[in-house]
Design a protein around this nucleic acid. Structure first.
Lengths: 182, 182
DNA sequence: CTCTCATGTCATCATTCGAAGACATCATGT
DNA sequence: ACATGATGTCTTCGAATGATGACATGAGAG
């Protein structure tokens, strides 16, 4: 009951946001066009400009979309690793992981993506490493996150055959074995 | 004395190839334009079509360029890891690593990049793992290579601050510690 | 009912890109 | 010296893309 919408602009916004999230995850920002987004959403692409301001701001909106959960668990928690890898396998790696290896041209966009990356992957790891008394926890956290991003993206890209074909559980086990500090 | 060049088409080809290698390494294939390549090479971009057939074939030519060394050492050899990370830090990660996480649209181009990736990173690792008697050597090799690619690309991208600022030696040590099987 | 504005549709613009071709220029063989 | 083909320069084309604004339409206010 947040007030009934006339011709449902809220719904159009939502549809665009969802379609954009999917497409950005599948093909990345650059290779997604506002026409494709509009087509998938069943909404005229011109409304992207009206409701978000432009493609870049739509991207920013998708970034803020799923930061719902507060402090996420770190990568070395099996459930967290599984969730991330599974999500990437089914819906694409997501725009945030992509931003780690291929920065955006727009500095503002890149900064936003980098912050999401830090909050959702690096910081939890850094906390864990600090807790465990490792030296250089920040650097170790970034390194571990980068390695995980590489695995996740590579698996989705299909470039590595065995990696693409292996089941999620298998990957989770090997990744955790690989990344766990010793 | 391989026959003197009239107006030195061989030199033009070479200049284009060099400039293309640099630009592809710095910005990746998609974000590099043939006009930029021509400008950097000091050669008219139209000659790319003449000498290589087009942008995609120029890219393929750069891939075949530096596969001089025969069987390269595997990633877990410190010198090899250092060489790769150092090269990436100074001249960009190179088109091959990029292909691991962001496939090209042209299937032929992607296949060529994937093969280079396999020959130069995965196969040596697979041999090592087989030698060491690990199970699933192929999968482990691809996983390790993917993690390394993630670290290398992330470091070059500047998205992770500590990772970008850390010295090569430091990274090499941590990467080897991370990726070495146990 | 009618006015008004939010909402949606459509056409078009400016830019960028790879590609192709017309034309000019120079070197070499005869 | 001239003809021929290789080499280089320049313009232009067609497609794709993000953005913009004019116009149409429908719902709610008075």
């Amino acid at each position: 009951m947040t007030a009934p919408k006339r011709r449902d602009s809220a719904r159009s916004r939502e549809l665009l946001l969802t379609a954009a999230t999917e497409l950005f995850a599948e093909r990345g920002f650059d290779r997604s066009t506002i026409r494709e987004i509009g087509e998938r959403a069943g909404v005229d692409p011109a409304l992207i400009a009206r409701y978000f301001g432009g493609k870049a701001q739509l991207y920013l909106a998708t970034l803020q979309l799923d930061q719902s959960g507060a402090n996420p668990a770190d990568l070395l928690e099996p459930e967290r690793a599984r969730a991330l890898l599974d999500h990437a396998a089914r819906r694409g790696p997501g725009p945030i992981l992509r931003a780690a290896v291929a920065p955006h041209e727009d500095p503002e966009v890149q900064a936003a993506a980098a912050e999401q990356l830090r909050r959702r992957l690096v910081d939890p790891l850094c906390e864990r490493f600090t807790r465990e008394g490792l030296d250089r926890p920040q650097l170790r956290a970034e390194l571990t996150a980068a390695a995980f991003v590489g695995v996740s993206l590579s698996r989705s890209s299909g470039t590595f055959q065995a990696l693409a074909e292996a089941g999620t559980e298998e990957i989770v086990a090997l990744v955790l074995e690989l990344l766990a500090p010793r």
